[in-house]
Amino acid sequence: MSRTSAPAWMGRPTPAVRIAKAVALTVVVLLVVFPLWTVLATSLATPQNVIDNGGWVIWPEHLSFDAYADILKGGIITRALLVSAGVTVIGTALSLVCTIALAYTLSRPDVYGGKPMLLLVLFTFLFPPGMVPLFLVVRSVGLFDQYAALVLPFLINVFNLVVMRGFFQSIPKELIDAARMDGAGELVVLRRVVLPLSKAVIAVIGLFYAVAYWNRFFEAIIYFNDQSKWPISTVLRQYVTGGASIAETSGELAVASPQSVQMAVVVLATLPIVLVYPFLQRYFAKGVLTGALKA
């Protein structure tokens, strides 16, 4: 092979290879879309339609929103959605503020004690606390049965911190030096120079935190005795694993079938993240890869 010839992976694929790729991509898409469509179709099916199809509906004969009306009329699901929304919004905001502050501090080479602090942070990443020590800490500081127990113990994720620190380090040092020569302090540099250039990584890390807070269910089971404080992910687990017992005992099932209610809860639990993700997808390659490579 000539030295000037392009590598095999850069050449134009043969028709057979392109057909194989198209078939593989189609199969993967169907494997992803079909379960989602089945969940949505079952949630919109009538009780008789669900019974006739053995519990799963691929194409509903008549659209019915009874399942959504049943679970959104002010009962358990409505409270759980509000709890999850509040925990996600407040937790994501606090986590971003703390992560940005610590990442910027650790990204500056002249910070006193920066290296030991970074090693301490990485130590917690390599050796995370177990469930029992974390439970004892939460109970000892008075967070038991409090919404803060879903936020404060998970305020900073080390992986997100390392990625954001690497992104901050990739910002040209000349820009920061120029701002300092103009008399800008650290807060001004962070607010007017670093943050405007870091919108991509902030959007990605914010989505990571939001997904983590929205999907947090196990901690609610451990830290909450009052089930009315459970977030939507914990209630969703109870619906899926325990059937519709929660809805039946609270009087929420009026018209829809249990299967439709379960699938409607799944749709409501996944819909917010599905709606937000497309708007932030274009930031992923720039935000994560730049920070990870630099780190």
Results as ranks from 00 to 15, higher is better:
residue 95 S to L: 09
residue 268 L to M: 13
residue 174 E to Q: 15
residue 112 Y to Q: 13
residue 78 T to Y: 04
residue 175 L to D: 04
residue 144 F to D: 07
residue 177 D to N: 09
residue 243 G to L: 10
residue 39 V to D: 00
residue 232 I to H: 01
residue 6 A to R: 15
residue 77 I to F: 15
residue 168 F to M: 13
residue 246 I to R: 01
residue 9 W to N: 10
residue 64 S to Q: 08
residue 88 T to K: 13
residue 82 L to C: 08
residue 15 P to V: 05
residue 186 E to T: 07
residue 212 A to P: 03
residue 244 A to Y: 02
residue 101 A to F: 12
residue 244 A to C: 13
residue 251 G to D: 09
residue 126 L to H: 06
residue 152 L to M: 01
residue 194 V to R: 03
residue 145 D to T: 00
residue 49 N to H: 01
residue 116 P to L: 12
residue 200 A to D: 06
residue 166 G to R: 02
residue 1 M to Y: 13
residue 196 P to C: 08
residue 80 A to D: 04
residue 158 V to T: 12
residue 156 I to W: 02
residue 85 A to P: 03
residue 40 L to G: 05
residue 62 H to D: 06
residue 174 E to M: 08
residue 144 F to S: 12
residue 273 I to V: 14
residue 274 V to L: 15
residue 227 Q to C: 08
residue 14 T to F: 04
residue 214 W to M: 10
residue 71 I to V: 15
residue 176 I to M: 15
residue 26 T to D: 04
residue 84 S to R: 06
residue 173 K to Q: 15
residue 11 G to M: 14
residue 4 T to I: 12
residue 91 G to P: 08
residue 219 E to F: 09
residue 4 T to M: 12
residue 44 L to S: 00
residue 130 G to P: 03
residue 231 P to Y: 09
residue 105 T to K: 12
residue 27 V to Y: 01
residue 137 V to G: 06
residue 237 R to E: 14
residue 255 V to Y: 11
residue 233 S to N: 15
residue 92 T to D: 10
residue 67 A to L: 10
residue 258 P to R: 15
residue 276 V to P: 00
residue 234 T to F: 11
residue 95 S to Q: 13
residue 196 P to S: 09
residue 293 L to A: 14
residue 230 W to V: 07
residue 219 E to S: 09
residue 210 A to T: 04
residue 181 M to L: 15
residue 4 T to L: 14
residue 155 L to T: 03
residue 69 A to G: 04
residue 66 D to L: 04
residue 178 A to V: 02
residue 148 A to K: 00
residue 179 A to D: 00
residue 201 V to D: 04
residue 200 A to L: 01
residue 229 K to L: 15
residue 256 A to I: 02
residue 293 L to N: 10
residue 95 S to K: 12
residue 293 L to S: 14
residue 251 G to H: 05
residue 39 V to I: 13
residue 123 F to S: 14
residue 183 G to R: 14
residue 73 K to T: 10
residue 134 L to V: 06
residue 153 P to C: 00
residue 75 G to N: 12
residue 168 F to A: 12
residue 13 P to F: 06
residue 234 T to Y: 11
residue 265 V to Q: 00
residue 84 S to C: 09
residue 240 V to Y: 00
residue 291 G to Q: 03
residue 244 A to H: 09
residue 54 G to K: 03
residue 41 A to N: 02
residue 67 A to D: 03
residue 187 L to S: 11
residue 146 Q to K: 14
residue 73 K to H: 14
residue 111 V to C: 11
residue 282 R to K: 15
residue 209 Y to L: 10
residue 11 G to D: 11
residue 50 V to G: 00
residue 198 S to N: 01
residue 36 L to N: 04
residue 94 L to W: 07
residue 14 T to V: 07
residue 127 F to R: 02
residue 175 L to K: 09
residue 21 K to V: 10
residue 288 V to S: 03
residue 154 F to M: 05
residue 66 D to C: 05
residue 288 V to W: 04
residue 274 V to Y: 08
residue 35 P to M: 03
residue 170 S to P: 05
residue 101 A to P: 00
residue 285 A to D: 14
